[in-house]
Design a binder for these strands. Structure first.
Length: 223
DNA sequence: GCGACAG
DNA sequence: ATCTTGTCGC
């Protein structure tokens, strides 16, 4: 499936409502994924660089990397981040030699105003299992989780549990985990903990973030 | 109406 | 996201 680029906020919201029914929230999703992909996009004005880093799910070693350059086609609007990043991410994902078993997105999934954040969007368009890991609060309310790594609390929105606030490092600010597509919340958190042996953020997002910034600086590709 | 608001 | 030095702590 290819990404649509709306011209207005109304069109964008309509597309989200249209794709939302295609979400598969059945789960459970992979517990021991062989290949886990991290995706991220870096910007410099209108120029952008999308990156996909695939890690071995067991060793966390980088096994494949892809970067693509492009131009911003949709300005950032809270709740519509996917329209800014998905086109370039699909392009990059399409250049992988093999599909990953799980994709870890920078941002939110179900924990979204219309229950269709970046992770859901990318999941539906690729058909692959996805989860979202946000660094800061966006929507929902929550109690602070205990200081121990692994402790978590419910992220609630309009009376629904839409995600978890998970502590990945003792005494360090937690991350916001929500499901994207074809993965349940327990499995999503299980994977996030497996990807954070010593840092707050998943190795997948750390590597893809670094990769996208490098690509931007090196002008590896541009339109 | 006003402020908040993933990246 | 991006603009940006030094500094506290493991």
């Amino acid at each position: 499936m290819k990404a649509q680029t709306p011209r207005t906020i109304q069109e964008a919201e309509a597309i989200q409502d249209e794709l939302r029914p295609l979400l598969d929230l059945t789960g459970p999703g992979p517990r021991r994924p062989a290949r886990v992909a991290g995706v991220d996009v870096a910007y410099d004005g209108q120029r952008l660089a999308a990156a996909v880093a695939v890690l071995d799910g067991a060793t966390l070693e980088v096994v494949e990397q892809v970067t693509v350059g492009g131009r911003v086609a949709f300005d950032y609007v809270p709740g519509l981040l996917a329209f800014r990043e998905v086109p370039a991410l699909l392009e990059a994902l399409g250049r992988l030699t093999a599909a990953p078993d799980l994709i870890v997105c920078d941002g939110y999934g179900l924990a979204h105003p219309r229950r269709f954040g970046l992770a859901c969007h990318l999941g539906v368009l690729t058909g692959l299992p996805t989860i979202g890991v946000g660094k800061t609060a966006f929507v929902g309310s929550y109690p602070d989780p205990a200081p121990e790594r692994g402790s978590w609390t419910d992220l609630t929105l309009d009376g629904d549990v839409v995600g978890r606030v998970l502590r990945t490092r003792h005494g360090v600010k937690p991350v916001f985990v929500s499901v994207g597509h074809r993965v349940d919340l327990d499995t999503a958190c299980h994977n996030v903990l497996a990807l954070t042996p010593h840092y707050r953020l998943p190795e997948t997002t750390r590597v893809s973030d670094r990769l996208s910034r490098m690509a931007l600086i090196e002008n590896v590709t541009f339109d």
